[in-house]
Amino acid sequence: MNLEGKAALVTGASRGIGREIALDLARQGANVAVNFSGSEAKANEVVDEIKALGREAFAVKCDVSNSSEVADMVKAVIDTFGKLDILVNNAGITKDNLLMRMKEEEWDDVININLKGVFLCTKAVTRQMMKQRQGRIINIASIVGVNGNPGQANYVAAKAGVIGLTKTAAKELASRNITVNAIAPGFITTDMTDKLPEEVKAEMLKQIPLSRFGEPKDIAKAVSFLASDDAAYMTGQTLHIDGGMVM
C-alpha cells in the first residue's frame, strides 16, 4: 500500500479512529491535514507524530457542518499540499437518547455533523479531484447504520444516510476516476465507546463472533487500503469491520 506523495485530509483526526487513520496514511507515505474542531492540543500531537515519520502535516480547525469553514479548510489543504488525493470523512459525535426522549437539538446536532458534514466535505473536494481525474473518498459510517441500535436514532439515521450518500457519490464521480467507499466499524475501543457502561459492553461482546472489541488500527488499515491504487476497482461499497457482528 504505497501512498507516497499523496495528499490526504482526515476530518476528526485528533482522537480515536480518526487519529489512527491519519497516522496510518502517513506511515504509508501520505502527507496529511489533521482536522479538529475542539482539541487543538491533541491535533498538534498527531501532527508532530506524522512529522516524526518524515511526512508533511498540519492541523486545521473546522466545524464540518459549516460550509464556509469547510471551503476554507479544503482551500488550505490544496494551497499547502498543491493537491488533494484522499478525503476521509471521519468526524462524528454521539448524543444518545431514546427516541421518545430525544430532543430536536440532539437530532439536529448529530445529523449536521455526521451526515451534512460528509456532504459538505465531499462537495468541497470534488472540484479538485475532478480536475486531477483521480481521487479517493472514504466515509466512516457505522455498523449501527446497517443494523439499527436502540438509543441512537439520530446517529443511526446519519450513518445510514452516509452509506446512501456513499453509493450516490460513487455513481456520480466514477467517470472521473474518483472512488467513494464507506467503512462500517463495529465496536471499536475509543473515547466515544469508553463511556458505555460495563454491562452494555459485556452484552455487546456476546454478539461479536470474534469475541473481542476492535481497535482503531483495524479501521485505519482498511482506510489505507481503500486510499491506495490497489483498491482502484472498488467503489460504492460499505466494508463491515466488526468482528463478524453483522453479516
Binding site: M130, K131, R176
Partner: peptide, 9 residues
C-alpha cells in the same frame, strides 16, 4: 451533467 459542471469550472 457532469461535463457541464466541469466546463463551468
Amino acid at each position: 451533467s457532469l461535463d457541464v459542471v466541469e466546463l463551468v469550472m
